[in-house]
Write a protein that binds this DNA or RNA. Structure first.
Length: 421
RNA sequence: GUGGGUGUAGCUCAGUUGGCAGAGCACUGGGUUGUGGCCCCAGUUGUCGAGGGUUCAAGUCCCUUCAUCCACCCCA
């Protein structure tokens, strides 16, 4: 085969598309109920938008972006996530003038040049929701509830919610330096990976599987101990609302996110059914980002749901029940074929799914095809029927047949086909 | 970027010490000249991932390469 999809990119085939549609439909329904409006932004943005919001030192920016230069030498990047683009759109279009609080969602592909593995692709799809302009913990709770609600409506099991607070610019530096100080005493006790992490992403060390590292950080300081009063109250408020809504959750002090812009609330909805990738939804608050990108100083919070991962969970549990044609017309002979084509078109215009065979095969072959397609009924019409002014309507499930007059056939069929459920 | 597994028919996979490229499913036709599923019979489908090497002979052994999956890192 000369051409095939490039590494980490996938075709979603017709037989796979069912769960995708159900997921998107469900999400749109929930967004409607929660008052979120759809926004569509370009897949391509200036590189600086991502490097400045996500963070120059993060894995995403430092090694995972699809970046190229246009003819004028400007850096262009396929979006690796949606928040930066939505924030840009929010600022550029001054949506905050319309109304201080904007609740937005978008659905579409993201691109990261990573090594593909289970649940991880170079082009993947996210359902993304953001609230701009509201600082309070009630917004945090609403957003989390909304993500949980989408997953609940899909009947997915085995999902757990983890929440944490990362502090704010007031209190985080204190924690960071304290943790660094602590880790500095432990150099030598840590594995190579963690020695590097101590510099780049200290909180990750808590996750290390090497036993020695676990022991080394046993007495390390915890973020929550360093939170300022405001952050503490915020986090407490969030937990209160989650409890009110009867959403079970777990406070996970080690929950860190790989993007620099997060402040205060961070959360993940996790599963242990997807191999090494346990996050189905990830999100958090980013109160400084709008200002950082040159907009007004307004808070925001958002989440991203990995569609491939949710779809994998749906498929794992079995799904489907493919749709069935309402009618298959078996026409024998050119005259009958011509008449059938007209009836078929008429019924399709009336909203029915109707199929027929164009190849002129025998009745047996056509019946076989009708069966393969799962047609509920078959209409059999040949020269005899045309002459007699009648056709045979067969119920494919119970094999009962009846004669129907060709006179006013389509309106009669419409009536018969409506009795499907 | 690093490590390991796997590449043979449309799909799932067998293939022995190197000796004619296989099965099941699917598909097509027939048994039933105008009635689907079950059954029976017949048939179609291959650069054995690619390139090179060893050999009388390579799907099988050696080298190289590519793809894919899983894992590390990190993330949805």
């Amino acid at each position: 085969m000369e051409f095939s999809t490039i590494k980490g990119f996938k075709d979603i085939l017709p037989e796979e598309v069912g769960p995708w549609q159900r997921l998107e439909q469900t999400a749109r329904h929930v967004f409607h109920c929660f008052g979120y409006r759809e926004i569509k932004t370009p897949l391509l943005e200036r590189t600086e938008l991502f490097s400045r919001s996500i963070g120059e030192e993060t894995d995403i920016v430092s090694k995972e972006m699809y970046t190229f230069h246009d003819s004028k030498g400007r850096g262009m990047t396929l979006r690796p996530e949606a928040t930066a683009s939505l924030t840009r759109a929010y600022i550029q279009n001054r949506l905050y003038h319309q109304s201080p609080v904007q609740k937005l969602f978008t659905i579409g592909p993201m691109f990261r040049h990573e090594q593909p593995q289970k649940g991880r692709f170079r082009q993947f799809h996210q359902i993304d929701a953001e609230i701009f302009g509201d600082p309070g913990p009630m917004s945090d709770a609403e957003l989390i509830l909304m993500a949980m609600e989408i997953l609940r409506l899909l009947d997915l099991e085995g999902l757990t919610l983890a929440v944490n607070s990362l502090g704010c610019p007031e209190c985080r530096p204190g924690f960071r330096s304290e943790l660094s100080k602590f880790l500095a005493q432990k150099t030598g006790a840590l594995c190579d990976n963690c020695t590097r992490r101590a510099r780049t992403n200290p909180l990750r060390i808590f996750d290390c599987k090497v036993p020695a590292c676990g022991q080394a950080v046993a007495g390390a300081p915890s973020v929550l101990d360093f939170c300022c009063e405001a952050c503490r109250a915020h986090f407490k408020g969030l937990q209160g609302y989650l409890e009110e809504a009867q959403i079970p959750f777990r406070v996970d002090h080690r929950l860190v996110r790989g993007l620099d812009y997060y402040t205060r609330t961070a959360f993940e909805i996790q599963t242990d059914l997807l191999g090494a990738q346990n996050a189905v939804v990830g999100g958090g608050r980013y109160d400084q980002l709008t200002q950082q990108l040159g907009g007004p100083d307004l808070p925001a919070i958002g989440f991203a749901m990995g569609m491939e991962r949710v779809v994998a969970l749906m498929e794992r549990r079995g799904e489907a029940m493919p749709e069935r044609p309402d009618l298959f017309i078996c026409a024998l002979g050119t005259e009958a074929g011509k008449a059938a084509f007209v009836w078929m078109t008429d019924l399709r215009r009336s909203g029915f799914w109707v199929e027929m065979d164009y190849s002129g095969k025998g009745l047996k072959a056509q019946m076989k095809r009708a069966h393969r397609l799962g047609a509920r009924r078959a209409l059999i019409v040949g020269e005899d029927e045309l002459a007699a002014g009648k056709a045979v309507l067969r119920d494919m499930d119970n094999k009962r047949q009846e004669e129907v007059a060709l006179e006013g056939l389509t309106s009669h069929l419409q009536q018969a086909l409506r009795q499907n459920d």
